[in-house]
């Protein structure tokens, strides 16, 4: 445990040293932690899917109904596997950003989190309205995805202040005009 403390102290020192003033440190930190947490959650579900064992369901009751449903697989592979890969990718990308500070990495992350958010929303919909049972672990993943998505939007706003964010705002204005 002491090793962990030393590790995290060193890591935060590196982050402090490396983060440009424009991108807030806490944003990088949450991306780091979020990617890790999402990975742990998804990897656990992937393992249990292959083991066939029931997960320890807490707070909610419908875990196994959801995890054993036909929606839990895509092309024969567990959904959780894709989730684990996604979160691991986010984690690796944010490490790479801390290392190199290349803006393009943040751009990739912000695009990925949009995809992650869309997928999470779909699975939330499936649970609530099709399976009519909710799995706690899936809910946690959805929660992480939403946070990462919001952070992704923040990144777009900060890094592309002149171009992409303005384009986004203009698109929204056009939609508004079209509706009204």
């Amino acid at each position: 445990m002491k090793i962990l403390k030393i590790l995290s102290a060193k890591l935060s020192a590196i982050i402090k040293f490396s983060s440009r003033p424009k991108i807030p440190r806490w944003l990088i930190g949450i991306l780091f932690v979020g990617g890790l947490a999402g990975f742990i959650d998804s990897f656990y579900l992937t393992l249990e899917h292959y083991n066939g064992t029931a997960v320890r369901c807490f707070i909610l009751k419908g875990c196994n109904k959801v995890l054993a449903s036909s929606f839990s697989e895509i092309m024969g592979l567990p959904v959780a596997l894709f989730g684990a890969a996604y979160y691991l990718l986010i984690f690796i990308l944010i490490i790479a950003y801390i290392d190199t500070e290349k803006k393009i990495l943040l751009n990739i992350i912000s695009r990925l989190t949009v995809a992650g958010f869309i997928m999470s929303s779909w699975f939330l919909f499936v649970q609530l309205f099709i399976i009519k049972a909710v799995c706690t672990y899936c809910l946690f993943s959805a929660f992480i995805s939403i946070i990462l998505f919001i952070l992704g939007l923040m990144i777009i706003k900060i890094t592309d202040a002149d171009s992409h964010w303005q384009k986004l705002k203009n698109t929204f204005k056009k939609i508004k005009k079209f509706i009204l």
């Binding site: 890591l11 490490i95 801390i98």
Partner: peptide, 9 residues
């Protein structure tokens, strides 16, 4: 940085 991240995973 990379080593400790790898370790965490």
């Amino acid at each position: 940085l990379w080593l400790s991240s790898f370790l965490i995973i």
